[in-house]
Design a protein around this nucleic acid. Structure first.
Length: 982
RNA sequence: GCUACCGUAGCUCAAUGGUAGAGCAGCCGACCGAUAAUCGGCCGAUGAAAGUUCGACUCUUUCCGGGAGCACCA
């Protein structure tokens, strides 16, 4: 490393700040001048090497970020990252598709930013980590919105036209959301995202269904749904509005036909009845069971004195029932837990059918008798418990809400009811019950009841045919549970959560009576009413989706869709009808691993990681798992992580009605996306997280600190060229070696935390390092050396070398988090030759980069400095006392006299020469007289204050040509002036 | 109602069952060569109550508060 010519050599390291201006001030002075000139005329202030950089203190992120985004786009940065990562080990985070409806909210920001942290940190850890974003485009919410937009026009439109309108609507929001996601600085293949409505994706979905069907998972069954008999349609939960409604409520008795003595000896030989209460008399014909709560207590009571009829009523409701039914007495003959009634047999009051005693947890004691009339064809809970007990989903009500004789019914519907609507049937049923002596009481009741959102008529629950995937077919449930055990869940409780869900969930109802989605590809033979389910035929149809989208199902006839000459295997008929239902949207998004983790996207199955909000245990994690286990035999992800909910500052959920919604757009406009990223960085993301003005203010300050840290290193490196100025680590000052070992530890810890996705720990560590290790200690101590030593002095170059290493490490270590700021800093950094144009093309620093060149002995000496730092705290406290007493102002006004015990005295003596600098005082004296621990005496510094370095020295004025300056400064100034012309 | 989750200082985070630590904020001060910066000092907490234990932020139970999913109002 030779002598150089700072004035004339140009930097060839990119567009980094130059730098030479501070020196330029002196370029006009010649060497000859320094020998003769009156040095007292030199402006001393200009001989101080202050930091200098174009990297602004103010970020102006709102303006800067769009510029960087455009630069990245124009330079094809994402593609460059792909190229430079090619061949490295793969790490694929598969994106869960947000729903293409509405603007993005903070929850989206949270999730997408976390994904970006993972992808970027994996990339910088040496993985090839592509990111293909996607959107969920089908489904009811979009269809409803489009319905509303179309209004009355919809009636004249074909299904294919309506679907086109839905597609346009979804595309609009895909584009909108895409813009917002990109604005966050999330890197990904935004030009080629996956959409569930893509022709190719739709064909994957339909093929997946056909495969499920072909492998025997799928069956058609009955399930009660909300039904509007005026609109003659099933309604989704979102299409139901609850309004007040007046219903007849009735108390009905069912004679016990099984052995009463088995319940309790006291009941042997008595006339015992089950007693139910209902507000829907028309469902009595469909009664299949009476449900009791297993844990409630039930009483068998005599209603009218000794020897009269006995009723089984929940003990807590005996009194109320007695009053309602007008009983004269309620003598309790026996009392037992509800679980004893399981298996009891009752007789339907007017149909030739038994009604069994069953147990159900949904039974309550709020109203009625504690015994619930159970009609699986007419109620959700009745259905669920009915499935458990193997009850028929009996629904003798047609699409118009009229009762009719169904096939294979047990017991015959009374003819008086047949053909009547359920509302007409209510009084008739009541009359029938009264005739049979089964009606004990009747009362009007006003309650909230589901109504159709369109016609506002009351709806009913009606058992309808739906398509299901059987959880216990082919061992689907068992295989899914086994797969769950093999996945790494983060946090760990996720495993139990989804395990319990899968273990207890009912069969998957995959059909929807809707238009905007992927059709269930099945045909029915009009001749014999049998279904056409042959895989080869259905595949032929689905293949047409690949080019024409699933719209072809609606645009073509069955004949056009099916291969020519297709005929029914049973009746040889050639006429078929198309299935009308579409698939559940969860089946669509649950198939994303099939549609995306393939050659088309350059990805492999399965993914390494899924990361979504906790709601997705019931959603995408769940459906993806079932589709994958069903068709591929294993889970589509090896690891599964959850992020929490975003709440307001009080920990309350955000809602429009409360008005506590925090809009990401507003924050971005005000503070920049970087601040949102920093917020995501700062919190423990597995838990619910808060955001508020207080939090944003804190983060703004933290951001400034981190930014200023980079600014300060850049500013002090303005005249440092690593090629010429680097000091070998082994020759550096010990405190410089110390900070490098600290930085090395920081890098090591942060990299481990990145590996665990513990971004908040990275943040805390970085922030603490910046505030404490650097700003409060190292930089503060360094100022004297950096500012007052001659620019090329060995001690100053030593400090700059440490700063340079640290700067290069920090800017890369933070790049996944502060994506914009680090890129900006990278452009201002005098980078090593051959380093990439973008910080996002670099790898994380290695701890060894910080400490390279330090021997074990050097590192051991760094430990001495840890001790010295502890002593420094004690010293600072003493200085503070002196300051409070107005004895000193600036610490340089002080002279310290230290006395120490035998534990630290050797250390103090060893580093005696470094202590004044470390404590930033003018002089430190050590007294040999021992003291307990460390005793600090603060005195006024002796000597005269040097105008340049502000230290009090005894040699100030020693150089007559520079009378206001200490000897060291005088030498530095002369060297500087001389250096300009060498 | 059911299932799992969360609760440490004003804020964000730490603490193998073993003395509850940071940073920021706040308050007081210093500096005026990182200046819409920088430095120092001080103040401050385990949601509540029982229990297990020599010892509990940590384990158990109950309660309170918060959020999530599911189900439901016959």
């Amino acid at each position: 490393m030779g002598r150089r010519e700072p004035c004339h050599r140009n930097s060839n390291h990119g567009d980094s700040t130059d730098s030479r201006a501070a020196s330029d001030n002196h370029c006009r002075i010649t060497w000859r001048d320094t020998l003769t000139m009156d040095l007292s005329q030199v402006e001393l202030k200009k001989t101080v090497n202050l930091p200098k950089t174009d990297f602004g203190m103010k970020a102006n992120l709102a303006q800067l970020e769009p510029k960087l985004l455009e630069k990245w786009r124009a330079s094809g940065l994402y593609q460059k990252i792909r190229q430079s990562s090619a061949g490295r080990p793969r790490y694929v985070l598969h994106d869960g598709p947000p729903y293409a409806n509405g603007n993005i909210h903070l929850g989206h920001v949270f999730n997408k930013t976390l994904k970006d942290f993972i992808v970027k940190s994996k990339t910088m850890s040496g993985f090839d980590s592509p990111y293909v974003p996607g959107w969920d485009c089908h489904g009811l919410p979009i269809e409803i919105k489009v319905d509303a937009e179309l209004g009355s026009k919809k009636a004249q439109m074909t299904p294919a036209q309506i679907r086109k309108a839905c597609r346009a609507y979804a595309q609009k929001y895909v584009d909108l959301q895409k813009k917002d996601f990109m604005r966050l600085g999330v890197f990904g293949d935004w030009d080629h995202p996956y959409l569930t409505m893509d022709a190719r994706y739709q064909s994957v979905i339909a093929h997946a269904f056909v495969d499920f069907l072909d492998q025997g998972y799928v069956y058609k069954g009955l399930k009660p749904v909300h039904w509007c008999m005026r609109c003659r349609t099933a309604l989704a939960e979102a299409e139901v509005e609850y309004e007040n409604h007046s219903s007849p409520s009735i108390w009905v008795r069912f004679p016990l036909t099984s052995d009463a003595g088995a319940l309790d000896a006291a009941l042997a030989g008595r006339n015992v009845y089950g007693l139910i209460w209902t507000t829907t008399p028309w469902t009595i014909p469909a009664n299949m069971a009476i449900a009791y709560h297993p844990k409630f207590e039930y009483s068998a009571v005599e209603s009218n004195g000794p020897g009269s009829d006995v009723y089984l009523v929940a003990t807590d409701l005996v009194q109320a029932t007695k009053e309602t039914c007008g009983w004269e007495s309620s003598e309790e003959l026996a009392r037992f837990a509800g679980r004893k009634l399981e298996g009891a047999v009752f007789r339907h009051p007017f149909i030739e059918r038994d009604s069994g005693g069953i147990l159900a947890d949904h039974v309550t004691l709020e109203q009625g008798t504690g015994a619930v009339h159970t009609a699986p064809g007419h109620g959700q809970e009745d259905y669920v418990v009915g499935v458990q007990y193997g009850l028929d989903v009996y629904c003798p009500v047609d699409v118009d809400g009229r009762l009719y004789h169904t096939e294979n019914a047990v017991g015959r519907l009374p003819e008086t009811l047949v053909g009547k609507t359920v509302w007409e049937a209510n009084p008739l049923v009541i009359e029938l019950l009264r005739e049979r002596g089964a009606l004990l009481a009747e009362k009007k009741i006003d309650h909230s009841y589901p109504h159709c959102w369109r016609c506002h008529r009351p709806t009913i629950f009606r058992g309808t045919e739906q398509w299901f995937i059987g959880m216990d077919r082919n061992g689907l449930r068992e295989k899914a549970l086994a797969a769950i055990r093999r996945i790494k869940w983060m946090p760990a409780w996720g495993e139990d959560r989804i395990y319990n869900m899968i273990a207890s969930r009912p069969d998957w109802c995959i059909s929807r009576q809707r238009m905007w989605g992927v059709p269930i590809v099945v045909f029915t033979c009009t001749g014999c009413n049998r279904m056409l389910t042959e895989k080869a035929l259905l595949d032929h149809v689905v293949d047409q989706f690949m080019t024409g989208t699933a719209d072809v199902w609606y645009e073509k006839t069955a004949k056009e869709l099916l291969p020519e000459g297709t005929s029914c295997a049973h009746c040889n008929g050639a006429e078929f009808t198309k299935e009308k239902d579409i698939l559940d949207v969860w089946f669509d998004s649950g198939s994303s691993h099939l549609a995306v983790l393939n050659e088309e996207f350059g990805l492999e199955w399965p993914a390494e990681l899924y990361l979504e909000g906790g709601d997705q245990y019931r959603g995408w994690f769940h459906s993806s798992l079932l589709v994958a286990v069903g068709l591929k035999g294993d889970a589509p992800y090896r690891e599964c992580a959850t992020n929490g909910w975003t709440l307001d500052g009080e920990g309350k959920a955000m809602s429009k009605s409360i008005g506590n919604v925090v809009e990401p757009d507003k924050i971005i406009k005000q503070h920049g996306a970087e601040l949102l990223r920093l917020w995501v960085t700062s919190v423990e993301f597995h838990e619910d997280v808060r955001i508020s003005d207080t939090i944003l203010t804190r983060l703004t300050e933290a951001y400034r600190k981190l930014r200023n840290t980079l600014r300060y290193t850049l500013g002090n490196l303005h005249d440092f060229d690593p090629v010429y100025d680097m000091v070998p680590a082994g020759e550096m000052l010990e405190i410089d070696q110390w900070i490098l070992t600290r930085a090395g530890q920081l890098v090591e810890r942060c990299r481990a935390w990145y590996g665990e996705f513990a971004f908040h720990r990275v943040y805390q560590a970085l922030y603490n390092f910046a505030t404490t290790d650097l700003s409060a200690i190292y930089f503060d101590v360094l100022k004297d050396r950096l500012y007052t030593a001659a620019p090329n002095a060995r001690a100053r170059r030593s400090a700059q070398t440490a700063m340079y290493r640290i700067h290069l490490a920090l800017v890369r270590l933070m790049a996944p988090l502060l994506t914009f700021t680090c890129e900006e800093a990278w452009q201002h950094t005098r980078r090593p030759a051959g380093s990439p144009e973008s910080v996002h093309l670099t790898l994380f620093p290695d701890p060894e980069e910080l400490t390279a060149g330090l021997s074990a002995e050097h590192r051991a000496r760094a430990a001495n400095w840890e001790q010295l730092m502890e002593l420094r705290e004690t010293v600072l406290k003493s200085l503070e006392v002196a300051r409070q007493e107005k004895f000193i102002g600036a610490p340089l006004e002080a002279r310290l006299v230290l006395r120490a015990g035998s534990d630290v005295a050797p250390l103090l003596h060893q580093y005696g020469g470094d202590l004044a600098a470390l404590f930033i005082v003018s002089e430190v004296a050590l007294e040999s007289q021992p003291a307990a621990g460390l005793s600090v005496r603060v005195e006024r510094a002796g000597g005269v204050k040097c105008e340049r370095c502000w230290k009090y020295t005894r040699d100030t004025g020693a150089n007559p040509r520079l009378p206001t300056v200490c000897q060291a400064c005088a030498e530095a100034v002369v060297e500087m002036l001389a250096g300009q012309t060498a």
